[in-house]
Nucleic acid binder design. Structure first.
Length: 220
DNA sequence: CGTTCGATGCACT
DNA sequence: GTGCATCGAACGT
């Protein structure tokens, strides 16, 4: 039996991940979220994708973690119960979505960096094209709709309103998916887009997958 | 191929 | 005032 199964991760596709899934070492959660499905329901419809890339941010000793400088009003969700969403605005432009992990009081989370689009592709395309900096430009290919943490929140319609919301229930949740839907290979690399903590191999992705972010041709 | 850089909001010092 | 867990256009090689 795998650690994920012991933690209550049901094998049946469509089953929502419980708080117990997130109440584990963050690197295990980052690994086990690969292949699961992130779903968002809004008035416009349902959009979802299979998680193909994540990053772990672990504790006040991790210089890249928002909790590195201690607890503040902004990063308070990191200290909260596992299985909640930590959503924040980055570079004034992009909402980034994390799943809070480990026991309450231990600040840690997994950043969702890329999805393989699954349901609601037309709505994703519509949302991506409505972003100001893409207006009037060409449509992204399907594999790029949710490639990158800022892109996937646009495609799924995830905003700061999701901050602190539980990921175990609608309208925003993560569920099991068919394990055969993605290829087997996984790669661990340094995290992307950070200045500090580059010595840690805390990014995990489906190897050589077109929906994974990062430079084309680089080790993915 | 590669690197640089502007847009843009807000938490934090 | 500074610095981002980004994106994608523009430019250099």
């Amino acid at each position: 039996m795998t650690a994920a199964r012991r933690a209550g991760r049901a094998a049946r596709p469509g089953t929502r991940l419980t708080a117990a899934f997130y109440d584990r070492p963050t690197l295990d959660v980052a690994r086990d979220l690969i292949g699961c499905r992130l779903v968002h329901e809004t008035a416009d419809g349902r959009t979802s994708g299979l998680i193909v890339e994540t990053e772990a941010y672990i504790g006040e000793d991790d210089p890249a973690c928002h909790a590195a400088a201690g607890r503040t009003a902004r990063n308070a969700p990191l200290y909260g119960p596992p299985g909640t969403a930590y959503v924040y605005l980055n570079y004034g432009l992009h909402c980034l979505v994390n799943a809070v992990t480990e026991a309450e009081g231990r600040p840690a989370a997994v950043l969702i960096r890329a999805l393989l689009p699954d349901n609601g592709l037309p709505l994703m395309r519509q949302r991506r094209m409505a972003v100001p900096w893409r207006r009037g430009r060409s449509e992204p290919p399907d594999a790029a709709l949710c490639r990158g943490p800022g892109n996937l929140t646009v495609a799924l319609g995830i905003t700061l309103a999701a901050n602190r919301q539980r990921l175990t229930h609608a309208p925003l949740w993560i569920e099991m998916a068919d394990a055969a839907a993605l290829p087997d290979g996984r790669v661990w690399t340094p995290r992307i887009g950070i200045r500090h903590g580059l010595d840690r191999l805390w990014r995990v992705a489906v190897a050589d997958h077109p929906a994974v972010s990062g430079r084309r041709g680089a080790v993915r």
